[in-house]
Design a binder for these strands. Structure first.
Lengths: 225, 225
DNA sequence: GTCTATAGGCTGATAGAC
DNA sequence: GTCTATCAGCCTATAGAC
């Protein structure tokens, strides 16, 4: 990847275009499509507002470009998990960790996707729709494998998927709000770190999905007496 | 309660006001505050748009009235769970069930609250802020009690709270989207019913929070041999 | 309480110079 | 590619008649 630095002010080819994508991602996540003002995006990006039309054909075009780029990147990052031959319970733990890593690196991803879902996916046409499904298919695949192979008790993969992904997306999408909440609350608590939440969720799923019979963990090479 | 019928076209006192509250709830949930048009609300309510200003002093006023009414109602419905002397694991199951019942009866509740959280709670001032916290405190209280009394393994109540409520809110807030998703998907599946999800979540939490030692259920009055 | 008419502001988009 | 100037449309809120 030719990305040696994460310069907030892009200097590569088409810096204005990149700046609009980057800032647009932030603002769309913060206030949603309807709340976003093209003037505000251009200003924060240090770019003339007319360039949004030049590059993306309008506000909606910019939004779709961003959503597409985001979904593609996330789908790609999750792809290695699909072909792995590891046991399902391991893969699930990995998946949770990967999701958290992606969400931390791209904080706008959970928020934008969730916003899109709340609005019924009005901006998801053709391409975007498929990529959206692809991301969610990865999770479900792992769960199906786990149930099939007996690594998990016979849960419904879709229901499990919804609970798991719901918890993950919710946690990361409401992070900013939680920080405000904790500060203004009577006793100022500090909001939980992502790592803690991930560990918690991993353990909850590990225990919650464990099959009933005998030891739920795959046997270690040398089992203790 | 003097509400014998759930007439979509209210006929009680101040029917216009009621219609605006009712339709406003729907539309704000569907498209968010910025996406909502006062003209659309008035039209669907069969009421003149100027009445929004007359009754609520403007769009923001209507929104706050709705959010306040919703949060108050939910907090009230959840209140009985706080004083119950039952064991924590039972109360948690009840809580999940109650949440589902409320979310089914008031479909806009999870969506509006989630939207508010995604936007950092910009509309939550004073009163509303407190009522928001109150709802979430109920969940946490039960978890804290459970950990304290040993009904649950020693999990962090806040993290558990976030995972559980996140899953619940996500499920109900994305229901409409899921219906669209399932239809347009290659193989048209039918979206899972709320009851199934609730049962799944109840069992997941029951197993996931069970303490390590021995039997995790409180002993029944007559234990089976 | 409800309506009509209209004001006033803002927003996204375009045309055209450089 | 980037900028300025400008427009047309929409959206909320208000004034005032009934």
């Amino acid at each position: 990847m030719p990305l040696p630095s994460k310069d907030p002010t892009p200097t590569g080819p088409e810096p204005s275009r990149e700046a609009l994508l980057s800032v647009g991602t932030e603002i769309f996540a913060e206030v949603g499509f309807d709340g976003a003002r093209v003037g505000a995006i251009a200003e924060r990006a240090g770019v003339n507002a007319a360039l949004i039309n030049y590059y993306f054909g309008g506000k909606a075009g910019l939004y779709r470009a961003i959503l597409g780029e985001t979904l593609t990147a996330v789908a790609d990052e999750l792809k290695p998990l699909r072909s792995s031959g590891r046991p399902a319970d391991e893969r699930l733990q990995e998946l949770i960790g990967s999701f958290a890593a992606i969400a931390t690196r791209r904080p706008a991803f959970p928020t934008m996707v969730l916003r899109e879902a709340l609005s019924g996916g009005v901006h998801l046409e053709g391409d975007l729709f498929d990529r959206f499904l692809e991301v969610f298919r990865t999770v479900q695949e792992i769960l199906e494998q786990g149930v099939r192979e007996g690594a998990f008790r016979p849960v419904d993969p879709l229901l499990t998927h919804l609970g798991l992904v719901g918890g993950l997306v919710f946690f990361f999408a409401t992070r900013t709000f939680r920080e405000r909440l904790m500060q203004q609350s009577a006793a100022p608590l500090q909001p939980p770190a992502a790592e803690e939440f991930i560990r918690h969720l991993q353990e909850l799923m590990d225990r919650g999905l464990a099959p009933d019979s005998g030891s739920r963990h795959r046997p270690a090479p040398e089992e203790l007496p």
